[in-house]
Design a protein around this nucleic acid. Structure first.
Length: 404
DNA sequence: AACACTGTCAACCGCGCTCCG
DNA sequence: ACGGAGCGCGGTTGACAGTGT
């Protein structure tokens, strides 16, 4: 059984443009329902909260511009391991770190709190400044990593769903080890997480299954794109894959990737259920610290959950939002290494735009994250009357909200 | 109970890229 | 053009937990 000082963290943000207003809240975690599949340990990502909010929004029915109610419930052990041993040797392996004693290793809950508070209050900036201003004896790189991989409120923790797994395999067959690219299509998942999942689980599974000869099994390198799902790919994708594989052992060219982009969008294996409006990405005006997506996941026990409305030309497929295969631009950045244009800056992250989806007919049974809200040039998303919002929120099955 | 082995995953490392002075 | 700072990415490491013997 893993232990940690504070197994649950709840982040809640209420935003009322132009400037966030303060609010107070308290919550209590209610007795979790036992998981039928797990008898001994309480699944870290299942919890039920009773939440009470006292808002300072004086007149919520007035024109609020963009009203944002962001709830990010970060579940799972905050510190899954013992606090790290503090080391005096240089962090980030540079000479400067040997001057000041920078910590390395696992993050303590206190450090997490410092970083979390700083990021929520100040947003993302220069990471070295973050480290300094937050009072952390860490290098900026370490802070960045911790934030991206662990503290970000929009992280979706817990086991990968079968759909996610399929998507990872599929995307890996198309993109190879471009974990950041793959992660860009899996909201709430980090490249590190996907990479670990791939290396620890999928790779092994594929290795076992590779004992059955397949047309693509000749490539023993797991780092190369291939059709690992055996039939998951459509014919045209396989044709593309042939083109891809023929090109070289090196990563695909921009041209290839551009073609690939057209082919894998929309993603073939899932039926789109919601038509996406074509908001352009990059038009957010919410402060960085408020660009959050909260997801409360029952992780299979209550079905999947997420209803997302995203910009940037992505699509909602079933319960997930899949951004488009981006960075296939042939423009001036074409010599980049197919960077994910959904960069880590929340301001530019299209799937930070989220709606509350409480449509029971849509089988959205869990609380849906609420996140980012912007006024696009042609479209407004995430705009609610606070009262309506609260009415919606109050009906979330596992969150009990009370506006005071 | 003790030990070995295996799986998972947070964190580090090094490299390459961009930006800026 | 050059060099340094900062950042992002992919590969790797190592600690811990779980499982088997």
């Amino acid at each position: 059984m893993r232990t940690g000082p504070s197994p649950y963290r709840l982040i809640l943000t209420l935003i009322d443009q132009p400037t966030p207003r303060s609010f107070s809240f308290h919550y209590s975690k209610q007795t979790p329902q036992p998981s039928p599949s797990s008898s001994s340990s309480f699944p870290p990502h299942q919890a039920f909260f009773s939440l009470s909010i006292k808002s300072n929004c004086s007149s919520p029915s007035t024109q609020l511009g963009v009203v944002v109610f962001a709830v990010a419930v970060q579940l799972g052990p905050v510190a899954m391991r013992k606090p790290e041993k503090s080391t005096a040797n240089g962090a980030c392996s540079n000479a400067a770190s040997t001057v000041s004693k920078l910590r390395k290793g696992l993050w303590s809950p206190e450090e997490d709190d410092k970083l979390m508070n700083y990021m929520l209050n100040n947003g993302q900036g220069c990471w070295s400044d973050v480290a300094r201003n937050a009072g952390l004896q860490r290098c900026g790189k370490s802070c960045r990593l911790r934030w991206i991989n662990y503290l970000r409120p929009d992280l979706k923790r817990g086991a990968f769903s079968p759909q996610e797994e399929e998507l990872i395999i599929h995307l890996h067959s198309l993109l190879g080890n471009r974990w950041s690219q793959i992660a860009a299509r899996l909201p709430g998942r980090t490249d590190n997480e996907i990479k670990n999942f791939w290396n620890s689980t999928i790779k092994k599974r594929l290795k076992n299954s590779s004992s059955v000869p397949s047309p693509n099994a000749s490539d023993s390198s797991s780092d190369q794109p291939r059709d690992v799902m055996g039939g998951l790919m459509s014919m045209r994708e396989q044709g593309l894959m042939a083109m891809y594989m023929d090109s070289s052992s090196s990563p695909p060219s921009i041209q290839t990737m551009a073609a690939l982009n057209q082919m894998i969008e929309p993603l073939p294996m899932l039926e789109p259920s919601i038509d996406m409006t074509g908001a352009n990405s990059g038009c957010f005006n919410a402060p960085p610290c408020m660009t959050q997506v909260g997801i409360l996941s029952g992780e299979g026990l209550y079905g999947d959950h997420v209803g997302l409305l995203g910009g940037g030309g992505g699509c909602v497929v079933g319960d997930q939002f899949f951004p488009p295969v981006e960075s296939m631009s042939m423009g001036e950045n074409s010599n980049k290494t197919l960077e994910n244009t959904f960069d880590r800056n929340p301001n530019n992250n299209p799937y930070n735009s989220v709606i509350i989806n409480n449509n029971s007919s849509n089988k959205v049974e869990n609380m849906v994250g609420v996140g980012n809200f912007w006024e696009g040039e042609d479209l407004r998303i995430g705009e609610w009357n606070l009262e309506d919002l609260m009415r919606d929120v109050s009906s979330f099955p596992f969150l009990d909200f009370h506006v005071e």
